[in-house]
């Protein structure tokens, strides 16, 4: 949970220490630790790959082919439904981050700087409230939501918006700290821009790295969410994987591998977004 949040915070504050320092480990020790740790962590991943290639006798791509075989469409239907639901949830959650959290953060930073500490405390709270605890309180709330807004899966995004809050907050705040939004906003206002223009055409482009990182982290968290969906009886990608795993463990493992690869690419993209943000800050600092 707190992983991505701290990662983002770390990547922005991390000072690059010189490569030649007295305390850095020697080449041999560096490689020894690296190979041991990386090797151990590769075992389950390699095992997953081997597992999906089994076909009773030897190894083949049977299970990979089966996933896309139209004959099996019926069997794997829960997965495609779950994936669709998870993608829809990602979209709504990202919308909450971009259109509710981000404008509020800008407002707090511009107009209520004295509230910043309290605001930070509140939005970081979900780190210390486990999802399983939240579910206990969400169950009655979702009974009411079910009656008023229907039992559509998209309403889960309200809960997900809370769980991604700490991660999204740190990414966006890092961008806000790196940008002089007060001067930008004042300049735009002086030149006659209304608040919507200031937000959308002046501030949003400047905060792009943070907004992008916040969105990508939100997508990663939503795609991996299981606790809330399963206990509120909604179907998403993870609950579908559990269902399908009972009939066909191979496909569940194949999709887990795919999800891992996808998350890896997402995080590389976040790293890129963070780095372009850093470059921007360096460019601004001399002025």
């Amino acid at each position: 949970m707190s992983a991505a949040a701290t990662r983002v915070a770390g990547s922005t504050s991390g000072s690059s220490s010189g490569a030649t320092t007295g305390y850095a480990p020697g080449r041999g020790i560096r490689w020894l630790i690296g190979i041991l740790v990386a090797g151990t962590f590769a075992i389950p991943i390699v095992s997953m790959v081997e597992f999906t290639l089994r076909d009773g006798e030897g190894h083949s791509l049977v299970h990979w082919a089966a996933l896309f075989d139209p004959a099996n469409a019926q069997r794997y239907q829960p997965i495609w439904i779950g994936l669709g639901n998870s993608l829809a949830l990602s979209v709504v959650t990202v919308a909450i981050v971009l259109f509710l959290l981000a404008p509020t953060m800008i407002l707090v930073n511009l107009r209520f700087p004295h509230l910043r500490r309290m605001f930070e405390f509140v939005v970081l709270l979900p780190i210390s409230i486990p999802a399983i605890v939240l579910v206990v309180g969400l169950a009655p709330i979702y009974l009411v939501i079910g009656r008023s807004l229907g039992t559509g899966v998209w309403t889960l995004a309200f809960a997900y918006g809370i769980t991604v809050l700490p991660f999204a907050y740190r990414s966006i705040q890092a961008s806000i700290d790196a940008t002089d939004i007060r001067t930008l906003a004042e300049a735009a206002r002086t030149l006659g821009a209304g608040w919507p223009t200031v937000l959308v055409r002046v501030l949003a482009p400047n905060l792009r790295p943070g907004l992008l990182a916040a969105s990508l982290i939100s997508v990663a968290v939503v795609l991996g969410e299981y606790t809330i969906a399963s206990l509120l009886n909604r179907q998403n990608l993870q609950t579908a994987l559990v269902v399908v795993n009972k009939q066909d463990p191979y496909v569940a493992v194949i999709l887990s591998l795919a999800a891992l690869a996808f998350a890896f690419v997402l995080l590389i993209a976040i790293g890129r977004a963070g780095r372009t943000g850093g470059r921007q800050r360096r460019k601004q600092s001399p002025s």
Partner: peptide, 11 residues
């Protein structure tokens, strides 16, 4: 690390 730390789940 980011991927594997988030990996704690069903997968």
């Amino acid at each position: 690390s980011g991927v594997l730390a988030q990996f704690g789940g069903v997968m």
